[in-house]
C-alpha cells in the first residue's frame, strides 16, 4: 500500500505544482493560461535532454528547465497579453499544441514520437533511499510559501488590484503589462520545474504525454478548489485525485459496473461536476477571491 500512496503523492504533487502555477497566473492575476502543458513539456524535455546522454547535474538541469519555460512564458506573454481574454485562452492553448508538434517533428533533437528514455532519477542530497516524493513535496511547500509572501507584498496587492479592475488599475499605474509579464514568467518557471520533476520521476517521456487534456485537468483542479486562494489549488488537486483514484476502489465494491463503463462514468462525472460548479458555485469549494 505504501508504494501506491507514495506514487499517488508524487504524481499528485506534480499536478499540484501546475495548479499552484495556474492559481498564481489566473487566480491572483486574472490571466487565463490554457497552455500549461506546453510549458510543462518544455521543462520536461529541457531537463531530460540535458541529462539523458551526458553527465549534466540533474538539479542544474531542472533549474535550466524552469528558466527556459519562464523565458518562453515571458516571450509568449509579450506577444499575446494585449489580446482580450478569450483570445488569450485560445492562443495559449494553441501554443501548447505547437510545442507538442515541434517535439514530434524535430526528431534530431527530441527523438520525435519515440520519446526520450534513460533519464536519470532525482538524486537526493541526504539519503539516496528516500523517494522523489520528498523533493516534490518540498518544492510544493516552497512554491506555496513564495506565493503567500508574494501576494502579501506590494507586488501582490498590485496584481490583485489589476485582476479586479484592470481599467482602474491602468489609470493609476502604467505598469499593468509589466506585472502581467512577470506573473506569466513566474508561473512558467514553476510549470517548467514541474515538468523536469516529472521527467526525472518517470525516466521516460514522449510527446503523447503532453496533450491538452493535462491542461484541462489542472484547470479543473483550480476551479474545483477555488481560484485565487492558496488552499484552493491544494483542495482542488486533492479532490480531483481522490475522485479519479477513489473511483477505482468504488468499482471493487460495485462489481456490476465494468471498468469500460466506469472509464466513461469517471470522465462524465468530472464533466458534470465542472458544469455544476462553474454554473452554481463558480468560486469553487474553498471560495475564491470574491468571497474572502
Amino acid at each position: 500500500m505504501i508504494h501506491y500512496v507514495i506514487t499517488l503523492l508524487s504524481i499528485g504533487g506534480i499536478y499540484l505544482l501546475l495548479a499552484q502555477a495556474l492559481n498564481l497566473q489566473f487566480g491572483f492575476a486574472g490571466l487565463p493560461n490554457f497552455g500549461i502543458v506546453g510549458f510543462f513539456a518544455i521543462g520536461s524535455y529541457a531537463s531530460a535532454l540535458l541529462t539523458a546522454n551526458g553527465n549534466f547535474p540533474v538539479y542544474g538541469a531542472m533549474l535550466i528547465a524552469g528558466l527556459l519555460a519562464a523565458l518562453m512564458s515571458f516571450g509568449l506573454a509579450r506577444i499575446v497579453l494585449r489580446l482580450r481574454t478569450d483570445y488569450l485562452a485560445i492562443v495559449t492553448l494553441s501554443f501548447s499544441e505547437i510545442v507538442r508538434i515541434l517535439v514530434i517533428g524535430e526528431e534530431q533533437i527530441t527523438n520525435g514520437p519515440r520519446g526520450v528514455s534513460g533519464i536519470p532519477g532525482i538524486p537526493l542530497l541526504w539519503s539516496p533511499g528516500v523517494n522523489a516524493v520528498v523533493l516534490i513535496i518540498a518544492v510544493n511547500v516552497l512554491v506555496a510559501l513564495a506565493t503567500h509572501l508574494l501576494v502579501r507584498s506590494p507586488f501582490g496587492r498590485s496584481i490583485r488590484a489589476m485582476r479586479d479592475d484592470e481599467a482602474a488599475f491602468a489609470s493609476i499605474s502604467k505598469s499593468a503589462v509589466s506585472y502581467k509579464l512577470r506573473v506569466f514568467g513566474l508561473g512558467g518557471f514553476v510549470m517548467g520545474v514541474a515538468g523536469a520533476l516529472y521527467a526525472h520521476y518517470f525516466g521516460y517521456i514522449s510527446p503523447d504525454q503532453f496533450l491538452p487534456l493535462t491542461t484541462f485537468y489542472v484547470w479543473i483542479a483550480v476551479i474545483l478548489g477555488g481560484a485565487g486562494r492558496l488552499s484552493g489549488a491544494l483542495i482542488g488537486t486533492i479532490v480531483l485525485t481522490l475522485f479519479l483514484e477513489g473511483s477505482r476502489f468504488l468499482r471493487d465494491v460495485l462489481p456490476f459496473i465494468s471498468e469500460v463503463e466506469m472509464a466513461s462514468v469517471r470522465i462524465g462525472a468530472i464533466g458534470f461536476a465542472l458544469m455544476v460548479l462553474a454554473s452554481r458555485r463558480p468560486q469553487g469549494i474553498m471560495g475564491d477571491f470574491t468571497s474572502k
Binding site: F202, R248, S258, E259
Partner: peptide, 18 residues
C-alpha cells in the same frame, strides 16, 4: 481486476500500483 490507463504512463503506473 480491471483498470483504465487512458493510454498514458502516469495513470498506467497508478493503476498498476493499485
Amino acid at each position: 481486476f480491471a483498470e483504465d490507463t487512458q493510454t498514458l504512463p502516469e495513470p498506467a503506473l497508478l493503476a498498476a500500483r493499485k
